[in-house]
Amino acid sequence: MTLPEAEPPPRARDRSEGQTAVVELRHVSLAFEEKQVLNDVSFRVGAGETLVLLGVTGSGKSVLLKLILGLLKPDAGQVLVGGQDLAPLSESQLYPIRQRMGIVFQEGALFDSLSVYENVAYRLREEGLKDEARIERQVREVLRFVEMEHALEKMPAELSGGMRRRVSIARAIVNEPAIMLYDSPTAGLDPVTAHTINILIAKLRDVQNVSSLVVTQRLADAYALAHFTYSAEQQGLVAVASDGGLGRRVPTHFLVLRDGTAYFSGSTDELTSTPDPYLRKFLA
């Protein structure tokens, strides 16, 4: 089966022009040796917004997250976090910027040799916090948030995939970052566990107003984040339409990557109503 010829993207444009962007990519390109991974990608994420990055495997989604963290440098273009260009910064200059961000890696990336408690406390210790009582209080608090307080003393090897992901979220949010990056947080999980992770992502977004970039290949998760909001009363997700009490829209947007280029950028409605054959095939 052959894919249709690449046509001009149906709606690859910058959103929220004029608003303050917490994360912004301007014409970013990156190649690994001869392979072009990203080509002229631009987007902005405003405060409290969620950007869902969709794309097939190898389309450059995870690389985008690493660029935003400053783990990789672009060959061309700018990566701005809080208005600051990351490219000219040294590794030590990047640390304060990374402190404002949290990342959940695809497999959790928990440190094998450390317990759940030590994994979550790691960031606090690295930031120079010495007060053990305060560290324990904060660690317990975030583990309670992800409903993993019971696993405090367990080692990562003893945890299931979903538990590892939840501990990874706890580790990422322990210092209350303003931006959260999720790299396929529900990949390989059963639907029930994936739903739990989605609830956590929505909870962070809706309760703590954290800006999020979510890389996923599961459209169901993307739609869940776009159409549902976290309800503290129901301890779960409620549909935006039925959430009249809150009277707010979920600020979620989509970016579809195709072969390293931003193929589509827009809202849920724009994505679902697109006539573009590639996107239709992707959404099917």
Binding site: L69, L71, R98, A109, L110, F111, D112, E126, R171
Partner: peptide, 17 residues
């Protein structure tokens, strides 16, 4: 093993060289 399981990236992301 740490590198391929992204623990090194996680380390850098958490502010450690």
């Amino acid at each position: 093993s740490m590198l391929v399981s992204e623990q090194i990236d996680a380390m850098r992301a958490l502010g450690t060289d």
